[in-house]
Structure formats: structure tokens, C-alpha cells
Amino acid sequence: MKILITVRGDFIAPRFDLTAEVIVATCYDHQLLEEPRSIILSEFSAEKMCDLVLKENINVVVCGAIEEKHYQFLTWKKIAVIDSVIGPFKDAMELAVINTLASGSILPGANLSGVTS
């Protein structure tokens, strides 16, 4: 299973359409198969992000805010979207790998002050 997480710094990016970096992780049987890799995007675009998701054969997308039309497009393409997740992307990834991350989750790290963009 391939997971894509939209990130900003150490946290999940607040907006899917304004994401400049994604982390792609491959897992099997609730375990990561390899070191997650980072992809830097040349521009902000929800459409290009959807293209990337399809090109990378992603199964699960973890993101912050996503517009309904992009959400519908991805689910129509049989991609699971876990949106409105707030918190450090590493924690989110761990939960996504073991299949316990839910949409709208606010992870403990999000309460930390001093978050940098």
C-alpha cells in the first residue's frame, strides 16, 4: 500500500491545494517497506497534486483541507482520502500505516506552540 502525505515543515500541510512537498511511503502488513521519500513540487496546484497521486499509484492520501471536487475525484479513482488531519506528519504516517488514522484527527503534536511554516 502506498501512502502520500501532504506536508509543510514537520506537519501535515493545512491545504491540499497549497502544498509544495509530499511524503510518499510504501508499506505492507502494517509496516513500512522502505524509507519514505520526499517529493518537492514546482508549484501549488490541486490538479497537479491529483496527477501526482495517480502517477505514483497511491492508495491512501493523508492531507489537511481539501476541496470537495478533488476529494470526489480521488475517491472516484478508488483512492482513500483521510482529510482534515492536523498534527506532525510522522505521527500521522505511523497511524496510517497501522490503518488507525481517521479523517478530522487532531494529533497531540498539533498543540505544540512554536510551529514553523
Binding site: P14, R15, D17, L18, I86, I106, A110, L112, V115, S117
Partner: peptide, 21 residues
């Protein structure tokens, strides 16, 4: 209740290029 203490930008999710700026 769930938003208090969370970084503002994560809750507002605005397009103001990095709301925090």
C-alpha cells in the same frame, strides 16, 4: 474545544500564503 491550543493556521486553513506570515 478541539481548536484551543492548536496552531491557528491548521484550523483556519486559509489561502493567505502562510497565514502565519
Amino acid at each position: 474545544h478541539e481548536a484551543v491550543g492548536v496552531y491557528g493556521d491548521f484550523i483556519l486553513r486559509s489561502n493567505l500564503s502562510g497565514n502565519d506570515q
